[in-house]
Each structure stands twice: as C-alpha cells, then as structure tokens.
C-alpha cells in the first residue's frame, strides 16, 4: 500500500459518501445520473464477485472496503430509483447505457490477461468503470449546470483514479508491478474528467457554480 493508493481509496470513499449525503440531506437526486450509479454498482459487483463465490470471514480491510463499495452503491441506486424516484431527472439522464456496457463487455472478451470467467468479469468491470461517468457528465451538459455538492462529488470521484495512476507509476518504479489493462483504462477514465477538472478548479474553488454554456 502506498500513499497514492491510500488517498485514492479515501477519495473514492469520500465521493460515495458525498453523493449519499447530498441525496439523503436534500431528499433529492436532482442533477444526479441514475445510470452512472447503476454502472458503478455493476462495476463493483463484477469486480468483487469473489466476495460472493467463496465468502471468507472479513479478515482484512480490503474485504470490508469491497463490501462498503457494493452496499453503498446499491443503496445509492435504491435512493435514486425508489425512495426519491420523484426527483430523478430521467429526461436529462438520457445517455444510452447500452452503448457503454456492450462495447466494454465485447472488449473484455477480446483484450484480457486470461480467458476465464472471473478474469473477464474483472476486465469488463475495469473497462466499464472507465466510461461509467459519461452519463453523469452528459446530464450536466444537458442541464447546463451542476450543484456545488455534485461538483465536489465529481472531483472526488475523478481524483480517485488520477491518484491510482500515481500509484501505478510508484509501483512500476519500486515494485516493477504493472497492470496494463487497469493503467490504460485508468488513464482514459481520468482524461474524461479533464474538462470538468478545469471547470472545477477555475470556478468551484472560487465559490462560483459550474454553469455550462447550454
């Protein structure tokens, strides 16, 4: 474990917590893409499928973190699609998730390290996570604005994988550890946030709200 991965995971946890708090406190999921949250839940379930297959006692923080990620993302989807369904902005959350899931699944079958079920599910999860934020960014471009709290959520979510890139550089240098699939997908994922990062740093940090030229 290195400092980059530690802060990456903390940033990821923070993102999940910020979103849950936003929805729970404001009792509304306006401005939040339900599709992105569904895709993240699918990512966690397919990536941590080993938890379900051979459930071993919660003997380390990693297992606890995996369970937190899965339960928090499923609970977030429950809040969006059931509890606060009336506030779900379905009209603007209109990016076709199939256009992300099918290519990720296809690519996972073509480019993977081992052609077996668990490995392909893991690879699918990595590819899907890289593009899972697109419906959320699409929604913001459609509504033309993002609530400040949602911007903080996006910043934490984007920072997590950016920190993981630093973690991979560190591990390559000190542990000669390399996972090309995760690295390439992580770089693509982080690039998708660049536009938002620019807006966040130039606007939200100065207390302004993000308003896109609609």
């Amino acid at each position: 474990m290195n400092i980059f991965r530690l802060f990456g995971d903390l940033s990821h946890l923070a993102a999940i917590a910020i979103l849950l708090l936003k929805i729970w406190k404001t009792r509304s999921c306006a401005g939040v893409s339900g599709k992105t949250q569904l895709l993240f839940a699918v990512c966690f379930i397919t990536r941590y499928i080993d938890l379900f297959l051979h459930f071993v006692s919660l003997y380390n923080t990693e297992k606890v973190m995996k369970l937190i990620y899965i339960s928090a993302s499923v609970f977030t989807c429950y809040l969006i699609f059931f509890k606060f369904k009336a506030t779900y902005d379905g009209n603007h959350d209109s990016m076709r998730a199939e256009f992300l899931i099918v290519p990720a699944a296809g690519l996972a079958c073509l480019i993977n390290t081992k052609f077996d079920a668990i490995e392909i599910l893991w690879t699918f999860s990595i590819y899907l996570e890289a593009v899972a934020i697109l419906p959320q960014l699409f929604l913001i471009s459609k509504t033309g604005e993002a609530e400040t709290i949602t911007s903080h959520y996006l910043f934490a979510q984007g920072s997590y994988r950016a920190l993981y890139i630093l973690n991979w550089i560190y591990r390559y240098h000190y542990e000669s550890h390399v996972d090309t699939i995760a690295i390439v997908a992580g770089v693509v994922q982080t690039i998708l946030y660049c536009d938002f990062f620019y807006l966040y740093i130039t606007k939200v940090v100065k207390g302004q709200k993000i308003v896109l030229p609609a």
């Binding site: 973190m65 990620y69 390290t113 591990r171 390399v178 996972d179």
Partner: peptide
C-alpha cells in the same frame, strides 16, 4: 521484466 500484477487493488 515487470510481472503482471496480482489483483491486489480495489
């Protein structure tokens, strides 16, 4: 040569 990573990351 760098070895392929074990799945030890979240």
């Amino acid at each position: 040569a760098p070895k392929v990573a074990p799945k030890d990351e979240l």
